[in-house]
Design a protein around this nucleic acid. Structure first.
Length: 376
DNA sequence: CCAACCGGGGTCTGCCATAGTA
DNA sequence: TACTATGGCAGACCCCGGTTGG
């Protein structure tokens, strides 16, 4: 999470440094001038609408941010900022939220009252309360406002229902990957077709269920490109030398969750981790088994994972013990370290008892520890 | 009664590029 | 031709507890 935020800040920083002196706008007493072709430094554009800027300022919108994101909106003569603000307010959004929404997705103010009302009803067919909708819009204004096509939204909802997804599934998808619903129907159909064809190609007896399971296991799948999913499936197969049935098992389990990783990232990660494991004396077969038993390894950052492995090895825990229980890697390095320390304090012998004790919930672990303390 | 197995739950956007449109 | 709508991309875990079988 933190890493992502750093990356985003970096992106913004890079953008700003590339255009440090970008003028804010071009107030033009000349009105609609034609640009002169022989002098490229002079760019003359339609002026911004100052009445609109006023309105937005009153609403608390960050004009600089809005301008950077969608400059054309600020030049429009007809907009509905007050209507949109009033609409959001009526649904329970406060002023700060409204300002932030418009700052981050200025085009929102071009939507009509009727359009907003209709879209709201469609969203509410999946969400129970207005505040749930508001919280998604607050998180991702773009997902909500980017499309002006409510008909497409409705078709998407019907399409997803037709796949047999429950209302709980739809709720989860709309909460965590709201972009799914502003995708074109066609795009969503393409992804479903890709997965369906894959199920058939692998000889799955029930391709519809195959598709449904992948989507319910991975709410993000429909906002990825088919290219990415295809690449990743091929990569799984090739890197791990999987048979059809092994691949089905992987994709219907934890594999579904890692399917949408950036392909390059996954390849890099796989290489780093398998190199590391082989360096520690694991055979190729063991490496394969490791990834099949613990697909999140594709996902984990190499630094973190490697850190955890080191931490285990330092505590006299054998790599083969780890291979038997890769799930202990799901716990944070910090958590693992604390647990190991506490166990060492009571003289726990990992060689004798293995590492499964680490793979338990906090409550269970503490109960176990207390018992060991009593015995000791 | 306990360990081991195993599935589930939370959670994720904001930018760029470009085809299409009025 | 300016602008809109939409596709695509990078980014990168942790934890809980029900059930089962010995």
């Amino acid at each position: 999470m933190a890493a992502r935020m750093v990356a985003q800040v970096m992106q913004m920083y890079l953008w700003r440094t590339r255009f440090p002196d970008l003028p804010n706008y071009f107030p033009s007493a000349l009105g609609f001038c034609t640009s002169s072709h022989n002098d490229s430094t002079e760019i003359i554009q339609k002026p911004e609408n100052s009445a609109l800027l006023n309105n937005l300022t009153v609403l608390g919108v960050d004009i600089k941010m809005a301008r950077r994101r969608q400059p054309a909106v600020l030049r429009k003569m007809v907009t509905n900022e007050e209507g949109v603000a009033e609409f959001l307010r009526s649904k329970g959004a406060n002023c700060t939220t409204i300002a932030s929404i418009i700052s981050r997705y200025p085009r929102a103010i071009t939507r009509s009252h009727w359009h907003l009302e209709e879209k709201w009803q469609l969203w509410r067919s999946i969400f129970k309360t207005d505040s749930e909708v508001i919280s998604v819009i607050e998180r991702s204004p773009e997902s909500y406002f980017r499309s002006s096509d409510n008909g497409n939204l409705e078709k998407n909802i019907n399409f997803l229902c037709s796949l047999g997804l429950s209302s709980k599934d739809l709720h989860r998808i709309l909460t965590t990957a709201p972009r799914t619903f502003s995708n074109s129907l066609e795009l969503n159909k393409q992804m479903v077709k890709l997965l369906h064809d894959l199920g058939i190609r692998l000889g799955d007896g029930n391709p519809d269920a195959f598709v449904k399971r992948i989507i319910t296991k991975n709410a993000y799948i429909l906002i990825r490109s088919t290219k990415r999913i295809k690449t990743n499936v091929d990569f799984f197969t090739e890197a791990l030398k999987l048979s059809n049935s092994e691949l089905i098992k992987l994709l219907q389990g934890h594999g579904a969750e890692v399917l949408d990783l950036s392909s390059d990232y996954m390849k890099r990660n796989f290489k780093n981790i398998s190199d590391q494991l082989q360096l520690l004396g694991c055979t190729a077969e063991e490496v394969k088994k490791f990834f099949l038993d613990y697909p999140p390894a594709f996902y984990a950052s190499f630094e973190k994972l490697s850190n955890k492995i080191d931490c285990l090895l330092e505590s006299e825990i054998n790599i083969k013990q780890l291979l038997k229980k890769p799930r202990i890697l799901e716990f944070s390095a910090n958590n693992l370290k604390n647990r190991i320390e506490e166990l060492e304090r009571v003289g726990y012998d990992f060689k004798k008892h293995g590492v499964t004790i680490l793979d338990s919930s906090r409550r269970r672990f503490e109960a176990k520890l207390e018992k060991l303390n009593e015995e000791g």
